[in-house]
Design a protein around this nucleic acid. Structure first.
Length: 314
DNA sequence: AAGCCGGGGTT
DNA sequence: AACCCAGGCTT
């Protein structure tokens, strides 16, 4: 779930384990299909890493999930929290799992204003959690603190009146509950401008795979021209990118989509989709993946592209 | 140590 | 609009 609410991921989990019921089935799958099952969840590196981890478990651990903390944390996509969670939940090993809930609970209980999103904070609160851990039932303990954080010690309006730990809470004594936990960094948001081309050539259209270190890595999208600012069509046609895309091609604008404002946690994407019909092809278009419209459902796509496709369905 | 990586629900 | 979510990886 890593930075995702359990409710948001639950249906994905059900469908995922139905399609990939064991580690071998996941290891043998194509990444594209794994991403397709992740489509819409976000943080797609989790899907890629889960797939890599499955391959590693098959190749390095004889298809058996490793049973030591050291081996578990060696798997891609598994960091300190997840390794501790698996180790304690599944194998009753004495590792404190420190997720967002536990950072909040511990910072309040101990009235500690060390920023939780720093190396120092990670060290401090992991140490407190490890000292507090019930070594005889670490899994139960870890899950109990997480549930406590989710039910009583919530971020905005904690239920201090009914809190079973009220007498132990330093933040409550000092009236600091609302100020804790402290966070240091605010992620700054950058604006981006995407001009997509939904090109129809008979029954087919064109896609490309996002392979760079950027958002939506390894997802598919329509041919894209990214610009520094909003650009209307009359300006767009004069860019070298547009000229290359449609040179020697007979194209006709079918429709221009409404402007999409797609907000991510760290980017705001302003997108337009141009619905274009063409006759014939050129060199540039041949470099894209040409696919029949009826097969579009096979490709993992971003929520933005999904929303565009939904908007033209009717 | 700081920045990047999504999408959606709450406040 | 700001915050947060059963965080991890890269730079």
């Amino acid at each position: 779930m890593q930075q995702t609410r359990v409710n948001q991921g639950f249906e994905y989990y059900v469908r995922f384990i139905e399609r990939f019921p064991n580690v071998k089935s996941l290891a043998e799958a194509d990444e594209q299909e794994v991403l397709k099952y992740w489509q819409g969840l976000g943080y797609y590196s989790r899907a890629r890493n889960l797939h890599k981890a499955a391959k590693k478990i098959v190749s390095d651990f004889n298809a058996q999930f490793p049973k030591t903390y050291k081996e578990i944390i060696s798997l891609p996509g598994i960091g300190e929290y997840t390794a501790a969670a698996i180790s304690s939940f599944a194998y009753n090993l004495p590792y404190a799992a420190v997720d967002g809930n536990i950072y909040r609970v511990l910072s309040r209980i101990s009235a500690n204003d060390t920023p939780i999103d720093t190396t120092a904070g990670k060290k401090v609160f992991t140490e407190i959690a490890q000292n507090l851990l019930d070594k005889l039932q670490p899994g139960l303990h870890n899950q109990a603190i997480m549930e406590f954080g989710a039910i009583y010690c919530t971020p905005a309006n904690p239920d201090c009146q009914n809190c079973p730990l009220l007498d132990f809470c330093e933040a409550k004594k000092l009236n600091l509950v609302q100020q804790l936990p402290v966070k240091q960094s605010k992620t700054k948001v950058t604006n981006r401008y995407f001009n997509y081309f939904f090109i129809q050539n008979g029954k087919s259209t064109y896609l490309q795979k996002r392979t760079k270190k950027d958002i939506w890595r390894n997802l598919y999208e329509f041919p894209l021209i990214e610009t520094d600012g909003e650009m209307d069509f009359s300006s767009l046609v004069q860019t070298p990118e547009f000229k290359t895309l449609f040179e020697n091609t007979d194209y006709q604008i079918n429709k221009i989509s409404k402007p999409f404002k797609h907000m991510l946690s760290h980017q705001i994407i302003y997108a337009i989709f141009y619905d274009i019909n063409i006759l014939g092809e050129n060199m540039r278009l041949q470099s894209f993946e040409k696919t029949e419209l009826s097969n579009l459902y096979l490709y993992p796509i971003s929520r933005l592209t999904e929303l565009f496709l939904e908007s033209i369905e009717k």
